[in-house]
Simulated assay, not measured.
Amino acid sequence: MTTCIEEIEIGMPGPPGKPGPPGPAGGSSVERTAAEPLSALTIVWEDADGKVSALDNKDAAHIDLLCGLTITATPSAGDAVLVQLSGAVDISGLGLTPGRVWLGPNGTLTQTPPAEGFDLLIGRAVGQQLYLSITDHINLEH
């Protein structure tokens, strides 16, 4: 039986890596790839490849694939976009009044409950914050 002794030298640590994207305070977010140009504060659905698109309140094919609310914008498909899943989001400039917020057409936020399609409560506006509390959708079609 032969004994082998190996000497290992521990090197110096390398430079720090690139910082990750900024995350929301008090919530959770994920980075996804945009399937289309997206504005910030758009409700999106996610496909099997991790690409997100605006979700319409009448989109029966994708309503169960809701991902969250974009907190960054992207001008073109293929770009990275941050999507928040829970917590508070700054909505200053949207003109929302305190109260409930629903999914509207083409991923927009609305304070008018939908009359057709799907009733999907996104959360509550309080001051300049939207507190995400996404609920299960209700099909309004008869």
Rank of each mutant, 00 (worst) to 15 (best):
I91Y: 03
T70C: 11
L82P: 00
A77T: 03
A73L: 02
D56P: 01
G68I: 08
I63G: 15
D79M: 11
H62K: 12
L85V: 01
G78L: 05
S86W: 00
L55C: 07
L65C: 09
G95V: 01
L82A: 14
L65A: 15
G87V: 12
T72R: 08
C67F: 01
D64M: 08
D90Q: 12
I91D: 08
I71Q: 12
I91L: 01
H62R: 14
G93T: 05
G68N: 11
L69A: 12
S53M: 10
D90H: 07
D79F: 04
D56F: 01
I91T: 12
K58D: 06
L82N: 14
N57D: 13
S86R: 09
K58R: 13
A61S: 13
H62E: 06
N57C: 14
A77P: 02
L65P: 00
D64K: 10
I63M: 15
S92E: 13
T72Y: 03
S76T: 08
V83W: 01
P75M: 07
V52I: 05
A88T: 01
L66F: 04
D79H: 07
A80R: 12
V81A: 14
Q84V: 05
L66V: 13
I71K: 10
L66K: 11
C67A: 15
L82M: 15
L69C: 11
D56L: 04
D90S: 12
V52P: 11
C67N: 14
N57A: 12
G87P: 03
L82I: 05
A60T: 05
D56M: 04
L55V: 06
I63H: 14
T97D: 11
A73M: 02
G93F: 02
A77Y: 04
L69N: 12
L69F: 06
L66W: 06
T70R: 04
D59P: 03
T70F: 02
T74E: 05
T74G: 15
V81D: 12
A88C: 02
V89H: 04
D64I: 01
T97V: 08
T72Q: 08
G95Q: 09
L96D: 02
